[in-house]
């Protein structure tokens, strides 16, 4: 029983990071109908910025804050400068450009910070059952997700964001600056992506550190339904739990496979994801 509880807690904690990354993908997908493959690269830049800031200031928390800010700014910048002109030509072009960005940014990070592994210390200990680090991961992602929900659901800004995402033309006719909302959406998404990076990165940092995390993040987003933020969070926790149980009971070498199994099972039962709305839309 203790074993089960340990596995559950560990699974939830690692699932929190997947959930955050999935959430960042879903926010952008909802607004622009494209999967942002550059998301882990943006998180990478943010976390390396945190690494440098922490080294300079000696404070983990100043580094943490700068990761979120750098992440947000990088996301907004990429949307405004790179994605928007390309998305006008075709959606597919934009998706491929995000893939290209992923490679370019990873390479760039390697050139600036070096391709070797850096030790990246963490503010909390992650030893033992439900360590402070695990608690922090769950709580921070929970708080951010709730905050995001509250902003989207209850503020005028959130209403504008949703209107711009669901029906850009009606939003414009209602006076919403849709372009600004897209930039804001990328900023918010990359803020959350940077948080995911700060949770999933330690204790080591290298240009490819998020590759695996990203695979699980995108898996979580697909499992939850690409256009459903709640689904992303649930999908992330589900993937975390599933991998934790499988590696605990069956062996760690099967953990990655279990993520694939979850995708296959969920999508064969609910092809649009756990919480997705029906795809047929009345117009």
């Amino acid at each position: 029983m203790t074993h089960f509880i340990n596995l559950t807690l560990n699974g939830l904690a690692s699932g929190a990071a997947y959930a955050a990354l999935a959430l960042s993908l879903v926010i952008i997908y909802q607004a622009t109908r494209l999967v942002n493959f550059a998301q882990p690269a943006l998180a990478l830049v943010a976390v390396y910025a945190a690494y440098t800031v922490t080294q300079l200031t000696g404070s983990y928390w100043i580094g943490f804050a700068s990761a979120l800010i750098v992440g947000m700014a990088a996301g907004a910048l990429v949307e405004r400068v790179i994605i928007r002109p390309i998305a006008k030509t075709s959606q597919l072009n934009a998706i491929i450009v995000t893939l290209g960005l992923l490679l370019v940014i990873q390479g760039g990070v390697g050139m600036v910070w070096g391709n070797e592994q850096h030790g990246f210390r963490y503010a909390f200990s992650y030893v033992g059952r439900f360590s402070p680090a695990d608690t922090f991961a769950l709580v921070s992602v929970g708080v951010v997700a709730l905050l995001l929900f509250a902003v989207y659901r209850f503020t005028p800004f959130g209403l504008r964001m949703r209107a711009a995402a669901f029906h850009p033309e009606s939003a414009r006719l209602s006076g919403v600056k849709v372009g600004l909302m897209l930039t804001a959406g990328w900023g918010i998404a990359s803020f959350i992506g940077a948080l995911a990076g700060m949770l999933a990165g330690p204790p080591f940092l290298s240009p490819n550190v998020f590759d695996v995390v990203f695979v699980f993040g995108i898996t979580a987003a697909v499992v939850g339904g690409l256009d459903n933020p709640f689904g992303a969070v649930i999908g992330g926790l589900l993937i975390g739990l599933g991998m934790s149980y499988v590696s605990g009971y069956l062996g760690p070498e099967l953990a990655t496979l279990s993520a694939l199994a979850i995708v296959v099972i969920v999508l064969s039962v609910r092809p649009d994801g756990i919480l997705s709305r029906p795809t047929a839309r009345k117009v």
Partner: peptide, 22 residues
Amino acid sequence: PEGGGVIVELTVEENLRLGGLW
């Protein structure tokens, strides 16, 4: 616009409020 352009993902009240948000 043609068809009304009602945003079906929002509630009735949200659709209305959107119009006066600016």
